[in-house]
Every structure is written in C-alpha cells, then in structure tokens.
Design a protein around this nucleic acid. Structure first.
Lengths: 225, 225, 225, 225
DNA sequence: TATGAATGAGCGTTCATTCAT
DNA sequence: CATGAATGAACGCTCATTCAT
C-alpha cells in the first residue's frame, strides 16, 4: 500500500544527509512563517527561499514545483497530527468510552489550537492544492486508530462501529474547524470544548443504549456530496 | 447598522436596470462555472468575463477588483443560506426540540448538498478572501434565528441558551463541511445525516436533563483559536 | 494662410449656439482642474467629462479624441497669451526701448505667474502632444508683434532686427520657463524679474551701440537643434 | 547627505558585475531609442525590454517600476551634464568674465545640441515624472560650480553673486530650452548662440558697472511661481 | 551541487472610444 | 443630439521556473 500521494507531488529526493534534513526543515518553517505573516497570495517561491536562507534553485531540488511544497507541508502536518491521534488511541485501549471521547477531543483540540495561526494558515493553504488523496490517507489512518480504540472500549460494544466512528471523527474535526472560522473568544471556546465532549458522550450513550437508530420524521436527503 | 462588509469590497454599483441584473447574474454564474470547472488558480477575470459573455471592462463596472467579485459571490450565497435557515426557524416556532433539530439539519444539509460542486467551489474560493466580517455577519443572523427557535421550544427550556445554540450550529455546520472534505459515498452520507440528527438530539436531551454541565476529567485546554 | 493646426486636431464643430460655448468652456475648465489636481497621468476623458458635468459622449462631439482636447486647450491658452502680447506691443508703439522691454517682460511674466499651477499643468500637458505647428503659429504671431514694436522704437534702429527679436523673446520666454522648473521662492523670483529686465536692456544697449556683433573666442558650435 | 532622490524611485540594485552594467546601459539606450523613435506614449516596458534585448522581468530587476526607469535615465543624463559644467567651471577658475560666460554657454549648448533628438526626448519624458528633487539636486550642483567660477573672476567682483548667478544660469538654460521648442534652423541657431553670449556679457558688464540695480518703471510683479 | 539572474507567459486592471438607447 | 454602459486592446507588473555559472 502506497502513501496515496499522486506521483507529481512527490518530493524529488529523500534526504539522506543531515544537511538535507536541516534544509528541508528550514524550507518548511519558512513556508509556514510566510504563510502566517503574509498569506497565501504572497507566498512566493522567492520569498520562501529567502526566508529559509537558501536559493530558489535549491528549493527546486527538493520540490519539483510550488504545489509540491505546499502539498508536502500539509502532508507533514497531517502526519504529525495522525501520529498524535494514534498515540492517544493506543493509550486509551480498553478504557471506558467517556475517557476515550475526552482524550480524543482533547488531543485534536490541543493539536489545532496550540499554534492557532499555523492551523489557520494551513486551512487556507490547503484550498489551493488537490489534496483528496492526502485527506483520504489521513482519514484512513485516523479511522483505523479510532475504530480500534472504540472497539476496545471496556464498557460498550457497537453494532455499527464504522458509522459511529465516522460520525464521531467527522463531528469532532468539523466542529473544531468551524470554531476557527467563527473566531471564538476564550470563554466561548472553553464552553464549546466542554459541550463537544458532552455532545459526543451523549451520542455514544444513545448509540449504545438504542443501537444507533434514529427516526427522522422526513426521509433522508436525496442529495450527496 | 451596516452590512459588516469592508468598503473596498463593496460592488461598484447597485443594479437598477433589468439588464444590469441579468449581467450580474451571468457574471456570478460564470464565476461559479469557472470555479467548478477549472479551480481557483485558473479563475481569471478574463475567463470569467468571457464565460459570462461580457467584456472584462463590463465586469469592472460591477466589481472594483477580482476580490470583490469573489467576496460578493460568497456574500450572495450566504445570504440565501441564511434566509433559508431563518425560514426554517420561523416554521419551527413552538415545535418540539426533536423536530427543530431535524429541520435545521435538513435545511442546512440540503442547502449544501443540492449542488455539491458549488458548495465545494465556494469552500475553496473563500480561502482567498478576507471574509471575517462576512462570516461574522452570517453567524449573527443565523444565531439570532436559531436562538429564537430554540427558545420557543414547547418541550424544553435552557439555562444557557447561548452556549447550547453555539454548540449546535458549530457542530452541524462543521460536520457538513468535514463530510465534504471526506468525499463520502451516498450510503455513508445518508448514515452520517441520520447520526447527526441523533447526536444533536442526544445532546439536547442531556442538556435539558442535566443543565448542560459536563465533567471533563482533565482541565480545559489552555489554548484558544 | 491657415491656423497651422493639423487637420486631425481640429475640433469637430464650431459652436454657434450659446449652449455650446458654455459646454466647451466647462470642458476646458474641467480639463485644467483635473490637470492641476491630478496630473497628466490621471487626466482621463471620463474624469474630465464628469467634472465638466457632461457625458463622455458629449465630449466626443466637441473633440474627436483626447489629444484634440489637450491640443485645443493649449491653443486657446496660447491664443490668449499672444493676444495679450500683441496688446502690449501695440500700446508701446513708438516708446523708448527700455519701456518696451519692461512692458514685454511684465506682460509675459504676469501671464505666466498669475495662475502658476495652470502654467505648470500646461507645460506638462504639452509634452504629450505634437505641438510643433501650434508653437510655430504662436511664435509667428508673437514675432510679428514684437518685431513691429521694436522697429517703432523712438530711440533706436536695428541693423538685424530679426536676430535681435528672436534673441529677446527666446531669452524672455525661456527664462520664465526655467524659473518655473526651479521652483523659485518669492524673493528670488522678484530678483530674477528685475535682473531679466536689466539683462535685456543691457543687451539692447549693446546691440544698438555696437551693431550686435560679438567676438566669441572660439568658433560657433557645430551642432544644431 | 543623500542624493535627494525619493526612495521609491531608487533603482533596485546597484550593478556590481560587468554584465549588469552592460544590461543597464542597454536598457537606458533602448529607452532613449524608443523615446526618440516612438514618443513617450509608446514607451512601454515591453518595448524597451525588447529593444534592449532583455526580458521585462530583467528590467524589473533593475527598476522597481517604469517611473524609476525614466527617473534614472534623466538622473544619469543630468549627472553627466553637471559634471561637464563643473569641469568647465574648474577650467575657467580665475579667467576673465567674458571667457567664463562664453565657456559656460558653449558647454551647455554643446551638451544639449550634440544629440538633439535625445535632448528633445528627455525634455518630453521629464514631464511624466516627479522630478522636483532631481532638478533641485542638479541646480544645487551647477549653482555651486558656477558661483565658484564667477567668484574667482580676475576682472570683477559681485555684490550680490547669488542673484547674478541665478540669473545667468536661468537665462542660459531657459534660452536653450526655448530654442529647442522653436525648432530653429542652423543659421538662426548660430545667431542665437552668439547673441546669447553677447547678452550675458552685456548683463555682467552692467552688473559690474552699476552694482546690478535696475529701475523698473512699474512695481515688481505681485505673483510668484 | 548550489546559486540567483534571467525568462516570458499570463495576470489584473485601465481607459479611449463606440453606439444602442 | 445626449447619454453612459459596454468594449477590448494594451498596459504595467509578477513570479514560477530554468539554466549558465
């Protein structure tokens, strides 16, 4: 199984030398700095290279074109994020559902808000690239981790684990993203954080109790994404 | 009270003539088409004008610059969306909570998925503009409508309506957005739709029952957005 | 003998109606205002028309294109200037040379400095048009007037009136123009004005006394304009 | 002490490499050629770059925008001109007034007429830029040089050297400029050249004899530049 | 291998001019 | 005739990308 990354977005070479790693890091860091300080519109290869302390030519040795840079940046970010989620899920193996939910939310929330301007910058940068495959790979990793965690819950079993898991992660990730868009203040953010935990717990409670059926009065929506 | 729209993003003139309305519509439609067909990167003024069947010059009679066009497009879209939500909220005045939740989710879901490629295109276009004010205005409108609806529920009262309302809309809007990013299939989407309703209902149930307190085992997250 | 004005710069119609005269005046006045307030670069037909309170279309009924407007503006200005010089020359018929010189300088100086920002604006606008013919016509008029005046001097006769006259007007006109470029202060300007009179008088004195011969130590310059 | 050149008109980089000097020269030369051949209106960045045999991009590596190019062109020209005037003034230190006057006029006349089409082109180009500071710097340099020269004259001293100097250079420079506008023929030009020398000599004579006072019959003109 | 000057396609924008109303 | 919306050629300028050094 590959990385899901399209060929044309693959970095040109994998750094074997320490120097290359340093350079790559500098480029990524510079990209983020420019993104944060100047926005997507002003993210030019020249500016990034300059801030990274390398020449444009060097940058093109690591990334065949600008899109690949942004792609790699997001990939790297998602990789770290996925790893953190995996760690959390591992640490919650066999725990009760309530703790799992909170741990998951806490991890994701923390990851997104500890450097909010970076999160924001990446949210914006991602709109410019064709990231379907990247998202898919990330989702697959996260789904595997969270599904595994949920399955191991000491106080519950699920008849339709896939659906529950999908709902949970979609709600959590989506809520955090929306919270960013709303530019919440500290107090509102704290409140939302707590409510999100309550909300997910209530949901899992209901699912475990009733088997996850819901009776909408109307029929399901005809359309799709 | 103004629209919250920054001055420099205000369309140059308000159409008074029928012809102008037609032209404006053509421009908006063309913008969406280009956005859908070619993506944000290839959304050039020339291309939009060409597809709209007008000259660039004409476009610049309606919009002082490209950003204003994208801004107006999103504004118009959010305006329709807010109106639909308001209508739903009005129609649910005094209804039971369960119905309200379903109606709200149904309305938003429908609005976003009936022409999914447009939703997708707008999600991407919005990353390019400074839309804080626009989002804020939209949120204010929606919050007013949903808060009013929830307050009128025949089967519940809330001690902290603001928080509950914020949670509800953030979760619903965020979940839908995330669902788009995940590119769900028909079956998964239908499932998620139903689960979202269940989830929101469970949450409101819990809130009404317990007063909305949740005991996280850990302290609240230190960071903010 | 015509006006020396190239065909393509001729205004489209001579106003026979009072209304037309008013409109024309408004257009000229607006042109000057825009020129003074915004500079040549921002002198657009739309702006001029707007300030004149007419439509672009109307402007194009009086001037076949923008250049014609600027041309006509300068022509009109030079016409007034020439008329003032002619009047002065007429009034000095038979006067002594000293008075003639002073009257000529005074007239020209006054004309150029009574609304200096307009003089400046026109100096700049003229660089954009092909004004050779216009200048030639103006010079011819002025030369005729000043030559006539000088010939009538009660206290002098000239062996080479043409050369003396050319020198005189070139020096006077050129000095004033250069003074504008130097942005002189009030005191310096006053001083220069007086020195210019002294200078021209000394020159005429010398010419009358010696016949206008000068012995340059070197030969004449090889080049030409 | 700076150059008096506004920041935004400063060339982007000073050429350190021989290649850069060649390129810069080519750009300047091309600018003049386009200016002479096509006029200010058709002086486009593309055209200049093309004629210089470089790309537009390269041009923008040397000049931040078109105005800076024109500004630099004029600056360079004035620099050479000022240097020539300074050289002349140096060479005339301690000479008699008559020789100084002739040398100054000869230098300026020669400089302006040896490539008259360039002089003409620059006269026109300068109308488009904000050149006050440039002119001021040029005047200061020239004034220093000529004042120094005049002060050293072996056959005269001045009670008001500043005024005399200002008059002299303003008259000389202005006369030459006006002569260009009149498009004089060879014979007239030669005549004017000689008369200009005579005129300046007569003036200085008068100044030295009388102390530079002149009794205008009327009062000084009220207006200023 | 690293560099950064050079490239030039392509962008956003302007504005003189036209012509249907 | 007057209008001013529409036109579109042409401009100034940017920046991803290349390649000689």
């Amino acid at each position: 199984m590959g990385t899901g990354r399209p060929d044309h977005l693959t970095p040109r070479k994998m750094p074997r030398q320490a120097r290359a790693v340093v350079t790559l890091d500098a480029i990524f860091e510079a990209t983020i700095q420019v993104l944060v300080a100047e926005g997507m519109q002003r993210l030019t290869t020249t500016r990034v290279a300059h801030r990274a302390g390398v020449s444009v030519g060097t940058m093109y040795q690591y990334f065949p074109h600008k899109q690949a840079l942004i792609y790699a940046l997001n990939e790297r970010y998602l990789d770290v994020l996925a790893a953190r989620i995996e760690a959390t899920c591992r640490s919650q193996q066999g725990a009760p559902l309530d703790r799992m939910v909170e741990a998951l939310i806490d991890t994701y929330w923390r990851a997104k808000t500890e450097r909010p301007e970076i999160t924001r910058a990446l949210y914006r940068s991602v709109a410019e690239i064709d990231n379907e495959a990247m998202i898919a790979a990330f989702c697959a990793r996260v789904d595997a981790a969270t599904t595994g965690m949920l399955r191991s819950a000491c106080d519950a079993t699920f008849t339709d684990l896939e659906t529950v898991n999908l709902t949970l992660v979609t709600v959590i990730f989506g809520t955090v993203r929306n919270a960013f868009e709303r530019n919440l203040g500290q107090k509102e953010a704290d409140g939302l954080y707590r409510q999100l935990i309550l909300l997910c717990r209530s949901y899992l409670d209901a699912v475990v109790r009733t088997g996850g059926q819901c009776q909408p009065d109307s029929k399901a929506p005809a359309e799709n994404f």
